[in-house]
Nucleic acid binder design. Structure first.
Lengths: 178, 178
DNA sequence: TAGATATAAGTAAGTACTCACATAAAAATT
DNA sequence: AATTTTTATGTGAGTACTTACTTATATCTA
């Protein structure tokens, strides 16, 4: 990621914080734990990020970008059926090494009350347009419904549910005649 | 609820804890905060519930029962189309005064890693059966998909999303030809 | 040598939890 | 029915420890 002007230790801190926040939770993770895991003095966290909240923000900003880069391929797609297909297959595109990162995003929606509604807006628009082109009766609703689904599927996968996501994706594609 | 052999103060504690855990989170809520809100000495919490975890368990046990009573009407239903309809309309049945309670259930799935998969098993069975009777190709998958939807819908409603759940329910009913 | 990067050793406030003690309710004994 | 004994319910001050955050001091690097 484009975190170029960053010390080695700064990155270590972010990495450790991401893992701990994602696995244990924000409030359950102390700054001293983060420092220990990062192999760094606790004070350094506050030098670089101001406070614990600032540390979280630094992680979340990167999240904004990652989400956008996931969406850009979908939003640019002209073929409406392809928009829907790519959306449905989105969860499959998530790299296992990024699980901590996405888990944190979901977790924070509940632990702190970060909505995530706004972040979905571009996808919502793209889907609404796609459904409109395909002459669906309520394109806006259809878009929200599909977003609801990928949110649920993502959440299930990240929580380690025994649900077979490949089969689920196939089933959905069929339902949308793709 | 059937918490008959309970002191007034005991119920006050549970009530305060439920509200705080649901709105602020488990780790963000201290036992002293709970005691203060309940108008009770902090020690009493530990007298009655052993520790903070025990306090949470007491609240969650009630949850088990509430979930069952939500399901029983669906599970007993013989008409498969009615099973699906009742499932889809489930979120509508949730009383606003119970929002804290359900919010806590969703929140805990992420804050502590409480799966909730098992609790859904009866509903999963009922739906699988219903879809089988209606000759759907993959009844198990269809059941899981519908559960994914209502989970997402409930989560959206509780998080105060601007999504119109009535319209969403209508759309879903139409998709299942009900 | 000046400024950024880092640390170790603090701080005050908060954390979950305990304990000695008081009172109210229930049971047992007279 | 009156009295004692036991138990359940409650308190408030204290425990050891952790928390987020600060500050004085050292060590790099340009």
């Amino acid at each position: 990621m484009l975190t170029f002007d960053m010390t080695e230790k700064q990155e270590k801190i972010l990495q450790a914080a991401l893992q701990l926040f994602a696995r244990e939770g924000f409030h359950a993770t102390s700054t001293s734990k983060v420092a220990k895991k990062a192999g760094v003095s606790e004070g350094l966290i506050f030098r670089h990020f101001g406070n614990k909240e600032g540390l979280l923000q630094a992680i979340l900003e990167e999240g904004e970008n990652r989400l956008k880069s996931l969406f850009v391929d979908i939003v640019m797609e002209p073929n409406p059926k392809e928009v829907i297909r790519k959306t449905i297959e989105m969860t499959d595109k998530i790299d296992v090494s990024d699980y901590d990162f996405w888990k944190l995003q979901f977790k924070l929606k509940w632990e702190l009350e970060i909505s995530g509604d706004k972040k979905m807006e571009p996808l919502n628009m793209a889907l609404t347009n796609a459904f409109r082109k395909l002459n669906y009766e309520s394109p806006e609703l259809e878009a929200q419904l599909l977003i609801l689904f990928i949110d649920g599927l993502g959440s299930a996968v990240l929580k380690g549910s025994k649900l077979n996501s490949d089969q689920m994706i196939q089933l959905l594609l069929k339902k949308y005649n793709i």
